[in-house]
């Protein structure tokens, strides 16, 4: 099997070519964010990017799996790729649930990567990946991304801007009567949106998908409970080496001239 990267004008075209040739390997994407796309026999079996939470974050940050159980599963000396299956074997996670989470993470990473144009890509030998049983034909990733972008704003640029936004609670968010009428999921999201976090940051904080968070944020924006953040910044102190102040400058001298007075 040749390890040559097929010529392609973009990532979807590359994945389609790898699918047609039933190739296996890892596509390293550089960009902001970049990522790794794992391909096995032409199917996309995993994707990792700093732009969206992976399987580990989804399991741990949502408290679905405890830190202790995760560490214990790792300590069994199992191949890291089989870590998910180890959790299933220990009865901590359903095999189908693992597949759901694996698919969710894969589509979410594909969405995060589709929001910006990559700087470049290269194909390498297969890389280690936490196996979840997910295997998606690349054309499904494309149709799902189109659906997602259309659902949010109909246009990639606007969706990408929304993904960089740092929504802040609106005054209405302090009204307990308004927040009492939210689902627990939306209420949790409202406390995580603090004007500093992007949807991606919130997704990592809560252990939820980026796209799911963006949809729920859109609900809260529509209800007037969130708004775009305001910027308030203060000055800073000097870092110059400190010298003791002399007595004359330490105590201000009363001014000889009286303060100016306004005349009517």
């Amino acid at each position: 099997m040749s390890q040559e990267t097929p010529a392609a004008r973009n990532i979807p075209a590359l994945l389609a070519a790898l699918h047609a040739e039933k190739r296996s390997g890892a596509v390293l994407v550089s960009g902001t964010p970049g990522g790794v796309i794992h391909v096995r026999d032409g199917m996309v079996v995993g994707m990792e990017t700093p732009g969206a939470p992976g399987v580990e974050v989804l399991l741990l940050k949502s408290h679905r799996i405890t830190e202790d159980d995760w560490t214990a599963a790792r300590a069994t000396g199992t191949d890291p790729a089989r870590l998910g299956l180890e959790l299933v074997a220990q009865g901590l996670l359903g095999a189908r649930e693992l597949e759901v989470i694996g698919q969710a993470a894969l589509f979410d990473a594909a969405f995060a990567l589709a929001l910006t144009s990559p700087d470049g890509w290269e194909m390498t030998a297969p890389r280690p990946l936490l196996d979840t049983g997910a295997a998606i034909p690349p054309d499904r990733l494309v149709t799902e991304n189109t659906r997602r972008i259309r659902l949010l704003s109909n246009e990639r640029g606007a969706t990408a801007r929304f993904a960089r936004d740092r929504p802040d609670p609106a005054p209405a968010a302090r009204d307990p009567q308004r927040t009492a009428r939210l689902s627990p999921r939306h209420r949790t999201l409202l406390t995580a949106a603090d004007g500093r976090r992007t949807p991606r940051d919130i997704a990592f904080t809560l252990g939820r998908g980026l796209f799911a968070v963006m949809l729920d944020l859109r609900d809260l924006l529509a209800l007037g409970l969130l708004q775009s953040p305001s910027v308030t910044l203060a000055g800073r102190p000097s870092t110059a080496p400190r010298t003791p102040l002399s007595a004359s400058t330490a105590t201000p001298q009363p001014s000889a001239t009286p303060l100016p007075r306004r005349k009517p």
Binding site: T32, P33, P50, G51, A52, V57, D201, F204
Partner: peptide, 8 residues
């Protein structure tokens, strides 16, 4: 956070 873009 744990997902920081280390390359960036």
């Amino acid at each position: 956070d744990e997902g920081v873009d280390g390359l960036a």
